[in-house]
């Protein structure tokens, strides 16, 4: 564990908490993509299957449980409790166009061809692109509430911090995982446009509104 890894995990945790607070406080999931949230639930479940096979550390187990539980709690709030506020007309991204290619890629490029390893790899590829329905929703409506912007910033920062963690680990421990590094770089790149808008608008107190 190094400072970049810890900061990344905390940023990830903060993102999830911000999202739950936004939905709970406003009693609404307007502006949030249910499609992205479904993809994140698929990511956590397919990646954390090793919860039942391997014990790594208490920290590792607890964080995995928090990510899985909170992701299902978010889905419950969106699709059951505050269903009436869900913006499904704008949330029209076809997630099968992400799920299928990621699965095929995981079958082709993986560290070893075993069910758990392929599912882990699938989750890494899927996580890289899971935010696309959310970014698509923001671009369709042309704006995002400030708390939604903070959520996206924390979620994007998490993988960017992991990239620093991987650079650190490569030099400090000789540890690297090309699949995670490649997917993490793509994941971070997808947020760049949003990061720019966040820094130039939201941090200056303005609403995140896309140029017409």
């Amino acid at each position: 564990m190094n400072i970049f890894r810890l900061a990344g995990d905390l940023s990830h945790l903060l993102a999830i908490i911000l999202l739950l607070i936004k939905i709970w406080k406003t009693r609404s999931c307007a502006g949030i993509s249910g499609k992205s949230q479904i993809l994140f639930a698929v990511v956590y479940v397919s990646r954390y299957l090793d919860l039942v096979t391997t014990f790594i550390s208490l920290y590792n187990t607890l964080m995995k449980l928090v990510f899985i539980t909170s992701s299902f709690a978010t889905l419950y709030l969106m699709y059951v409790k505050f269903k009436a506020t869900y913006d499904h007309n704008h949330d029209s991204f076809r997630i099968e166009f992400l799920l299928l290619p990621c699965f095929v890629l995981a079958l082709l490029i993986n560290a070893s061809f075993t069910p758990l390893e392929v599912l882990w790899t699938f989750s890494i590829y899927l996580e890289a692109v899971a935010i696309l329905p959310q970014l698509f929703l923001v671009s369709k409506t042309g704006e995002a509430e400030s708390i939604t912007s903070h959520y996206l910033f924390a979620l994007g920062s998490y993988r960017a911090l992991y990239l620093l963690n991987w650079i650190y680990r490569y030099y400090a421990e000789g540890h690297y995982d090309l699949i995670a590094i490649f997917a993490g770089a793509i994941q971070t790149i997808l947020y760049c446009d949003f990061f720019y808008l966040y820094i130039t608008k939201v941090l200056k107190g303005k609403k995140l509104q896309l140029p017409a």
């Binding site: 090793d50 758990l116 882990w120 690297y176």
Partner: peptide, 10 residues
């Protein structure tokens, strides 16, 4: 490509 499971990262 790197190590196989188990992975110590989240």
């Amino acid at each position: 490509y790197g190590g196989s499971l188990p992975k110590d990262e989240l």
